[in-house]
């Protein structure tokens, strides 16, 4: 009898592709939320595989805070072309200009929280009924309780205490008008799985995931990059360091790590030895003990 056995990565891939196809089949107007970070890159890569040789039957949606690392934007446009997808952009700057949100003040001001309004507006304007997200359950304690098919009420809110049970391969995407779903095909991937999959599939990544020289300063235990959107205060000293990013988010709240890892093998070795979670570099998670749960209830990614 032949050995019909799938490795961990093969099982994760088969599961994610199943979820992506199920999303296309169960919903009328899905979209894939694309941040330019490694998780959404892997998700989009899997979507290309799931519907190949046809194009994926949904657009990539990028919620643009306007506070991006330049490298991410260059990468985004090239990658979208490579996987033959279409791109829709929701702009936080536009939400600010229209008075939908008010920019935070002070040295720790971030557009991270404002994204939620732009995201929900973009969903409503385009009438998306399912948004694919790259969230993983190993990332954060509130995400650990998330379903593959996660219901959102007509205000876009998550009710973690009243989630639908999910069994076997059976996903219940039924909803009333105005409600929508968030779908997380990468739920069972760990950070290490993501890196191993990127390596196996040879997926191109934004350059800032690898070591480079950059002006940074320390704030609340994070190494933040000096950009036009984020300036150091008088008492904070800027130094040039060899760094890379473990996650990519808004430039104002994503911390760098000191690292000389300049290729995938070195990054994987570093991740394997890491003693800090990747979100340990995210000041947006440190605002309170349940910062992620609070933002998710409001409709965050």
């Amino acid at each position: 009898m032949p050995n019909y056995h799938l490795s961990n990565l093969d099982q994760l891939e088969a599961e994610a592709i199943f979820i992506l196809r199920e999303t296309a089949a169960q919903f009328e107007n899905p979209a894939l939320l694309f941040s330019g970070g490694k998780d959404s890159i892997v998700m989009a890569w899997l979507a290309r595989k799931a519907f190949w040789p046809a194009r994926m039957p949904f657009p990539l949606v990028h919620i643009d805070t306007g506070h991006n690392f330049e490298e991410t934007m260059t990468y985004r446009d090239e990658f979208v072309e490579l996987i033959r997808a279409s791109l829709v952009v929701g702009s936080v700057q536009e939400s600010i200009d229209q008075g939908r949100v008010v920019e935070e003040k002070g040295p720790n001001a971030s557009r991270n929280k404002l994204q939620t309004v732009t995201l929900l507006d973009t969903i409503e304007k385009n009438q998306y009924d399912a948004c694919l997200g790259g969230g993983r359950r190993d990332e954060e304690k509130a995400r650990a309780k998330e379903r593959f098919f996660s219901h959102r009420d007509d205000f876009g809110q998550w009710d973690p205490k009243n989630q639908r049970p999910e069994l076997w391969n059976l996903f219940n995407g039924r909803k009333n008008p105005g409600e929508h779903f968030r779908v997380f095909p990468l739920s069972n991937f760990t950070e290490m799985d993501i890196w191993m999959y990127i390596q196996r599939e040879n997926i191109p990544l934004p350059s800032i995931y690898f070591s480079h020289s950059r002006d940074v300063f320390e704030r609340n235990g994070s190494l933040l990059a000096v950009t036009e959107f984020l300036k150091p205060q008088d008492h904070e000293t800027v130094t040039q360091k060899i760094v890379r990013f473990r996650t990519i988010g808004d430039a104002t709240c994503t911390g760098a790590v000191e690292s000389t890892a300049s290729n995938l093998d070195e990054v994987i070795a570093e991740v394997a030895a890491a003693r800090q979670t990747e979100r340990g570099t995210r000041s947006d998670d440190k605002r309170s003990e349940t910062a992620m749960e609070d933002r998710k209830k409001e409709g965050y990614f």
Binding site: R137, Q163, N188
Partner: peptide, 27 residues
């Protein structure tokens, strides 16, 4: 593992939480 606010307050687990770990042998 008790990730949700209500769980921390009451000291009990309310919902399924998925946890991941790996040893050199298995994930």
């Amino acid at each position: 593992t008790d990730g949700l606010k209500a769980e921390r307050e009451q000291g009990i687990t309310i919902d399924v939480a998925y946890r991941y770990f790996a040893t050199p042998k298995r994930k």
